[in-house]
């Protein structure tokens, strides 16, 4: 904790509120995410985790509260510009360009990493080393394929991993990962953890992770934030959360006494 005080948070949520009609999906959410930190965002189904990610990445706008990213207030910044500032995102079911090849799908992440305009792109300017980065990540994920194949020809698990790769290719400062392990086999889950660790430790990216697999959360996360029906109910290190009564209650129900 002492270490965190000296570092500045890369992403800071302050009292985020959001409701859809009468349903509260976020109430007074506040937390800090530091560079290089993996933060688990957990909660029972329908707790508003994905909604919170949508608010951070700008797909929804919050009713009130502020989001501070890299020292700047981005509450009213449109989603695509947030992405350009460095908020990466993956989805529960991977979102790719279904009619494009795997290469194009990954290059679009690299395009974002390049941070250049269309015109410069047209004349072939590049600023990142796409091939090298991709190769490093592929080594970590232990798979290779024909880059000209269509994205839909890949199995679900590989597509989920590739979506993280695509996001990392865009050189984000924060990456929001929504249930990456769902639908993956145990081997792939290990690779997934490797790549998330690499993102946090080597690339110094702040990772916000939604995941239902508690084993994975406890294994990989530096800190955990728990919400239930949009309301924050616990925050702390994995050990603290494991012993937090409110959290256990939310997950297992109240014990009758």
């Amino acid at each position: 904790m002492a270490e965190n005080e000296t570092r500045k948070p890369i992403l800071k949520l302050e009292n985020i509120n959001k409701r859809f009609g009468g349903v509260v999906t976020a109430k007074d959410i506040k937390f800090d995410l530091f560079p290089g930190e993996i933060k688990g965002l957990i909660g029972p189904n329908g707790a508003g985790k994905t909604t919170l990610m949508n608010i951070i990445s700008g797909i929804y706008t919050a009713d009130s509260g502020t989001i501070i990213f890299d020292g700047m207030d981005i509450t009213n910044v449109p989603d695509y510009r947030r992405a350009r500032m460095g908020i990466g995102r993956t989805f529960q079911s991977p979102r790719f360009l279904q009619r494009s090849s795997i290469r194009d799908n990954l290059l679009i992440g690299a395009d974002l990493g390049n941070r250049i305009g269309f015109l410069e792109g047209f004349f072939g300017k590049k600023s990142t080393n796409f091939e090298q980065e991709l190769k490093d990540m592929m080594d970590l994920l232990h798979f290779g394929f024909n880059w000209d194949d269509e994205i839909s020809s890949l199995p679900f698990g590989q597509r989920k991993l590739l979506e993280i790769v695509r996001s990392l290719l865009s050189h984000p400062k924060v990456i929001l990962v929504d249930e990456p392990a769902a639908g993956l086999n145990p081997k792939e889950i290990n690779y997934l953890m490797d790549i998330l660790r690499m993102a946090a430790r080597k690339m110094n990216i702040g990772v916000l992770l939604i995941e239902h697999s508690m084993d994975m959360i406890m294994d990989i996360c530096d800190s955990i934030y728990v919400i239930s029906f949009g309301v924050p109910i616990g925050e702390g290190t994995p050990e603290q959360i494991a012993n937090n009564h409110a959290v256990i209650e939310a997950y297992l129900g109240k014990e009758d006494e």
């Binding site: 990445s57 700008g58 797909i59 989603d79 695509y80 510009r81 992405a83 350009r84 908020i87 990466g88 995102r89 989805f91 979102r95 790719f96 360009l97 679009i108 992440g109 395009d111 974002l112 695509r166 865009s170």
Partner: peptide, 8 residues
């Protein structure tokens, strides 16, 4: 949606 989160 994918386009937006990829900065397009």
């Amino acid at each position: 949606t994918a386009a937006r989160v990829l900065g397009v």
